[in-house]
Amino acid sequence: MTPHTASRRPFRWRPDQQWEGYLFILPSFLGFLIFIVLAVVMSLGISFSEWGLTGFKGFAGLTNYQQLMRDPVFWQAFWNTAFYIVTIVPLQLALGLIMAVGLNQAIRGVTIYRLIYFMPVVTTIVAGAIVFRLLLATNGPVNSLLASIYGVAGIPFSAPNWLGSSDFSKWSVVILTLWKNTGFTMVVYLAALQGVPKELYDAAHTDGASAWQRFRHVTLPLISPTTFFLFIFQMIGAFQLFSEPFVMTRGGPANSSLSVVQYIYLAAFRDIRMDKAAAMAWVLFVFIFAFTLFQNWTQKRWVHYESD
C-alpha cells in the first residue's frame, strides 16, 4: 500500500452503498443493454440467418454476405459512399478551418457571422434540401449565375442537371452536406484556435516567421488533435450518410447518389430483407472500424499533443 492511499479504506464490497449506485445507473444501463448490446448481438445473428417480417426462418450461413458481394447495387452504393468520404471529409475540414480562422479575428459583428455559419447545423435537413432543390433546379438560380459568369468569360455553357443526371447528383449531395455540417467543424476549430497560446505566436513573430509560417508551424500542429478528432468524426459521419441523399435525390438517378446506409434502409423496409440489411450493416461496421483503427495508428505521425 502506497503512503498516499494509506488513509483510504481498502476496496471491499459494501452492499449498503454500492446497491444505490447501481440503482442510479440502472435505467440507462438497461436501455444500453436492450437497445445497443442486445440489438448489436441480434443483428449479427440475423445477418447469418434467413430473417423476414415475422422473424427467424432458418440459418443461412454466409449466404447473405455472398449475395451482397454479387449485388451490383451494393457496390454502386459502396463506391458512392467512398466518393462522399473523399470529397466531404477534406472539404469540410478545409472550409471549416478557413471559416474558423477568419472568424477568430477581432472584427466587428463576429458573433453574428459565427451565428450565421452555425445556423445550418441546427436547421432541419428537409427544409434545407427543399431550398437546395430549388437553387439547383436546371433553370434555377445557381445555373443562371453560372450561365452569366460563363457568358462574361465568353465560354459556352451547358447547364448542369444537378439533381437529374448521374454525373452531378453526388455533387448535389456533397453541396448540401457541406452547407449543413461545415458550421459544426468551424465551431470546434474556433474553440481549438482560441486554445493556442498567444506567446507562441509572439515568439514566432520575434523569430521573423511570416503569417503563413506561423499558421503552418504553430497553429496547425497545435490544433492537430482537433483535426484528428474531426477527421474521425466526419469520416464516420460520411460513412453513415443517409438523410442528405435521402431527401435530396432519393439516391437517384440510376442509384448514382445512393449511399450504403440508404440501401440498408431500402433492404430492410422496402424489400423486407432484414437479413441482408443486417449483413450490410456489419460490412459497413467492419470498414468503419478498420478505417478508424488505421487513423488511430497513423496519428503518431501527425498529431501533436502538448504534453509530448
Partner: peptide, 16 residues
C-alpha cells in the same frame, strides 16, 4: 451526419 456512434449503424435496423 448528426451525432453518431461507431456502433450505431450496426443496430440501425433493429433499433428502429
Amino acid at each position: 451526419m448528426q451525432l453518431k456512434r461507431t456502433m450505431g449503424i450496426g443496430v440501425l435496423v433493429l433499433v428502429m
